[in-house]
């Protein structure tokens, strides 16, 4: 029994953190809110060159071929930096979904393009009405009536649905399924889609961990500097306890998220259950951290100019995306109690 990451996995995390500190500081996140597409090609290029975007893409097709356990710490870093880019959709979900469900030709066509950053691939699975980043995607993997389809972005009619998080560009899409768009059906499709849904929830959970930890860190910074009554407000016990409560929530969500990544990578029989536990706990933890952060910032945290809201709104969005805490607990409840 060894509950720890390998030196390689930790080194990749450190390297990505350093890259994001340079390439994705808060002004970059903020700029994505007001840009036309919400997407920064320069950032996407950096993430691709780092190897993140193609991390899960098939090694036989130009990808790095790594698994959920290798990815989870990197997603956490994306959360920490509130990265405005569809890493969850393209890397955590779409690449493995293509690998699991598509034939060789389709994989040969799209995996190298995805891994090299030439093409953005995103997903729209049943259970969600929205496709993230459909405006910048080249290909969208869509589920309909148990079938998986791959639809070129040009063949979609998109309706923008504005998110509270200005960097998340959501769309409802209309499209016509056809023999050409069909990737897989039957058992193959349903198994691949179920795994994709678990990967999405796991990736959201990992990002929520990073978001929550960063909101706590921002708040620690603020309450150490801000003075009232002649003292740093962080010396007041009420403030301390808000942050301590948040930290307990986050640090006890963390091992559930890591275990879920391990179970996904290993194909453990209970992996879906483990993912649900992770997503439920991480969503709750981020919610608590966001509340504590806002409360301890006071009005400055409530202002649009301050960066806190960029993180907080991402946390709200990801808390509900890929299944809310309550939905995931319901799934655990079914396993414990039956139906």
């Amino acid at each position: 029994m060894r509950f720890a990451f390998s030196p390689d996995q930790l080194a990749m995390q450190t390297a990505l953190r350093a890259l994001l500190e340079k390439e994705c500081p808060a002004p970059v996140v903020r700029a994505a809110w007001t840009s036309d597409t919400g997407h920064s090609p320069a950032l996407w290029r950096s993430l691709t060159d780092f190897g993140l975007v193609g991390l899960t893409a098939d090694a036989a097709h130009g990808g790095v071929g790594l698994d959920e356990l290798d990815l989870v710490l990197l997603l956490e870093e994306c959360g920490r930096a509130a990265v405005p880019a569809p890493v969850l959709e393209a890397t955590a979900v779409a690449a493995p979904l293509l690998r699991d469900a598509a034939n060789d030709a389709l994989n040969a066509r799209w995996q190298p393009a995805l891994a090299s950053g030439e093409a953005v691939v995103t997903v729209g699975l049943a259970g969600s009405d929205f496709v993230v980043a459909a405006n910048v995607a080249d290909l969208v993997l869509l589920e309909r009536s148990g079938e998986l389809h791959a639809v070129p972005a040009g063949a979609l009619t998109r309706t923008a649905q504005r998110s509270v998080d200005g960097s998340r560009r959501l769309f409802t899409v209309q499209w016509e399924p056809s023999a050409e768009t069909l990737v897989a059906d039957g058992e193959v499709a349903s198994r691949a889609i179920a795994a994709a849904r678990d990967r999405g929830a796991l990736a959201a959970a990992a990002q929520l961990l990073g978001l929550a930890r960063q909101m706590i860190a921002m708040t620690v910074g603020h309450v150490t500097v801000r003075k009232q009554f002649g003292a740093a407000i962080g010396s007041f016990q009420a403030v301390k306890h808000h942050l301590a409560n948040a930290l307990v929530k986050v640090e006890f969500a963390r091992p559930l998220v890591y275990r879920a990544a391990y179970s996904m990578a290993r194909g453990d029989a209970d992996r879906s259950l483990h993912v649900s536990m992770a997503k439920a706990q991480a969503s709750d933890a981020a919610e608590v951290a966001a509340r504590a952060a806002l409360q301890c910032h006071g009005a400055i945290g409530y202002s649009y100019e301050h960066d806190l809201h960029l993180w907080m709104k991402r946390a709200w969005a990801l808390g509900a995306a890929w299944g809310s805490a309550a939905q995931h607990r319901a799934r655990v409840g079914e396993a414990l109690f039956g139906g």
Binding site: V220, A232, L243, A244
Partner: peptide, 8 residues
């Protein structure tokens, strides 16, 4: 937690 883990 606040003082020794978070450094307040």
């Amino acid at each position: 937690i606040a003082e020794r883990v978070l450094g307040l």
